[in-house]
Design a protein around this nucleic acid. Structure first.
Length: 285
DNA sequence: TGTTTATGCCGAC
DNA sequence: TCGGCCTAAACAC
């Protein structure tokens, strides 16, 4: 699931499946190592759930008659929600990877499903302070922060885009899609941008977050080759993705070891150090 | 059958 | 900067 668009879709899903519904208990799977105390949701007092996302964080507002608390959640690489019934034919298969479960009074179960178990959750009064403004929810604050700081930021734009303090919600597929649309040199330092280029970078970022959301986000495997060529499997996102994972794109491993996909027009700009690691420079068509 | 890869993030050198 | 946390699917041989 998990970059800006998928988090917002997840938040929509939780609201859609929880509005007007009472919940009666919550539990984690045996295999999960998350230690957050869930007793607040297990006191025989029905509670309600609403959700909100900010960047890559999801915040559930859990309320009973007495009190309201925030459960702050992180999706990791594979987290998302599902609503299932105990009668569902693949119930066991789904529950195997459902590591936090909210039981509705009508018998349905709202599950945090997370195959790789990198997802986490904890009680918190505030959003995490190591993350910046949400570009869409807090647009003006976000833009001002960037306008005030880009001149002192000497990181490559391709790597700064992964910084959750400055580009909250942007992850590995979004940075590729943003840069191929701005046509910026991925190895240009943020401090070398001029004011107009920064405005363009911010506006393209906003455009990408919003259109990925409108195209229903989803799972990368559902977007990629060879599905892109197969109309039966085409999704709105498979047409939206222009660069990430494409056979026409070049790639390197960035400083954190993650694959960065980019337009081959920038092949000659790739710094030497990245060419010592695994990489692929495709021909410009 | 073994190896590589995956939308993220943290903590130890 | 690097490995670690995890599982499963896609590759390579």
């Amino acid at each position: 699931m998990p970059e800006w668009a998928e988090l917002r879709i997840t938040s929509d899903f939780v609201n859609k499946t929880s509005v007007g519904k009472g919940f009666i208990k919550a539990e984690k799977s045996d295999v999960s190592k998350v230690k957050t105390d869930l007793s607040f949701m297990n006191m025989n007092r029905p509670f309600t759930i609403t959700a909100e996302s900010r960047g890559k964080e999801l915040r559930l507002s859990i309320s009973d008659q007495k009190e309201s608390k925030y459960l702050l959640m992180f999706m990791g690489m594979s987290g998302g929600f599902a609503l299932i019934s105990p009668k569902y034919k693949d119930y066991d298969k789904v529950m195997k990877h459902s590591h936090l479960r909210f039981y509705r009074e009508d018998g349905m179960i709202l599950c945090f499903h997370d195959v790789r178990r990198f997802g986490k959750w904890k009680w918190a009064d505030e959003w995490s302070n190591n993350r910046g403004f949400d570009p869409v929810r807090e647009t003006e604050e976000w833009k001002n922060e960037l306008r005030n700081s880009y001149k002192d930021n000497h990181g490559f734009v391709s790597e700064v885009l992964m910084n959750q303090k400055l580009f909250s919600g942007v992850g590995n597929y979004l940075r590729a899609e943003i840069l191929c649309r701005t046509q910026d040199n991925p190895w240009k330092k943020l401090s070398e941008f001029n004011a107009e280029e920064i405005e363009n970078l911010m506006n393209v970022t906003l455009y990408c977050l919003e259109t990925a959301y409108l195209n229903q986000g989803g799972r990368i495997k559902d977007w990629q080759n060879p599905f892109i060529q197969n109309e039966n499997h085409a999704t709105p996102m498979s047409n939206w993705i222009l660069c990430y994972g494409s056979l026409q794109s070049s790639m390197i491993k960035d400083k954190t070891g993650r694959t960065f996909w980019f337009d081959p027009i920038w092949n000659s700009e790739v710094p030497e150090k990245y060419l010592k690691k695994k990489h692929k420079l495709t021909e410009i068509i």
